[in-house]
Simulated assay, not measured.
Amino acid sequence: METKILKPDQIDEAAKLIRAGELVAFPTETVYGLGADATNESAVKQVYQAKGRPSDNPLIVHVADIATVEHFADTLSAEAHKLMDAFWPGSLTMIFKLKPNVLSPAVTGGLSTAAFRFPNNQTTLNLIKTSGKPMVGPSANTSGKPSPTTAQHVYHDLKGKIAAILDDGPTEVGVESTVLDMSTDQPAILRPGAVTKDQIEAVIGKPVMDELHHVGVDEVPKAPGMKYKHYAPNAQVYIVDPDDSWKDVNQWVKDNQSSDPIGVMAFDKDLKSVDWANNIEKISLGTDVQDASHNLFNELRAFDDQPEYKTIFVQGVAPVGLGEAYMNRLNKSAGQMHFKQL
């Protein structure tokens, strides 16, 4: 299969492919998603095949209006409407109980709930409206690998496996949306993202749980990213925590005298403060957590294109605000491995 690269002025062609049951990768403000008609079970199943994604990992349904959510969801509470008013379109995904038999188990993972998002990207909203179809949209990458923040990342992973990629340039946020479970008595964050716990609580005026549950082997996760390894490059990532010294990292590299090159991803101030060993390749994550979140997946992928790199040290931050989402992704990339463990 030839994978076409389409531009925003080719929405009609992309929409025709979606209506025909084909797969089209699309941009959002967070990462690129892999789109298929959410009401076409055959198309949805192709998403799992293209990504190599486990079939019990439910998909997020992307919409361009609230009426579509109301069509599928059993009920939408006053709190849900407040959150929609505050954060849609945007980086908040919400899980609702469904009306009976409105979506295929291929979308829901066999659960009685589904996740919905109204993305803040006009090109993709145009695609949904023009196709007339809500779209499933997991990240448009090989399952388990760093999420794609450019059309080129998508093409690297999925060329020949999908019909087209709708290229709208690099994404803005760089980490996936916050996933909030609204199907329970107390809302719970299942995946942190750019919309924070404090922001959500300020809107609904009640506490929100941080869901720390680890999904069991035989259990179906309610949201993407809860059960399987995610965001991992081929090299082993080690997190350099805020109280670690980058000079100690540099010394560790010198002491181990490895012939393999070593990757370092850190803030500008730390990169400038160390006289680095010759076999270290330095990549800037910017100046703050917002920059780091935007750059994380892109730079992990840069090292993935260079198989000689077997070890990467990456800047850790305090898990506060956007830092919680950043550290969630980084911990999964590293398999919870930290420099302190070496």
Rank of each mutant, 00 (worst) to 15 (best):
I5K: 15
D9H: 15
D9F: 15
Q10Y: 02
I11D: 09
E13T: 10
A15V: 11
A20Y: 04
P27S: 02
T28I: 09
Y32G: 05
Y32S: 08
A36R: 01
A36K: 10
T39E: 14
V44P: 03
Q46Y: 03
L59W: 07
I60A: 12
V61F: 07
V63F: 04
I66N: 11
T68A: 03
T68I: 04
E70T: 13
E79G: 02
L83V: 10
F87Q: 06
T93G: 01
S104C: 08
G109M: 04
A114Y: 02
A115N: 06
F118C: 14
N121P: 12
L127P: 10
P134Y: 09
P134G: 05
M135S: 10
S139W: 13
A140P: 10
H153W: 09
V154E: 13
Y155Q: 09
G160S: 12
A163F: 14
D167L: 12
T171M: 14
V173D: 15
S177A: 02
T178C: 02
T184M: 05
R191A: 01
R191K: 12
G193H: 04
Q199S: 15
V203A: 07
V208Y: 09
V215C: 04
V217N: 15
P224F: 01
A232Y: 08
A235T: 01
Y238V: 00
D241W: 13
D241I: 06
Q251K: 15
D255I: 01
N256L: 02
S259K: 15
M265E: 03
A266C: 14
S273D: 15
S273W: 12
V274A: 12
W276I: 11
A277C: 13
I283C: 08
I283H: 13
L285W: 09
V289M: 08
Q290R: 13
Q290T: 08
D291I: 05
N295W: 14
N298P: 00
Y309I: 10
K310S: 01
K310G: 00
A318C: 07
V320Y: 10
V320N: 10
L322D: 10
G323H: 12
N328C: 03
R329F: 13
L330N: 00
N331I: 02
A334N: 08
Q336M: 11
M337V: 14
L342Y: 12
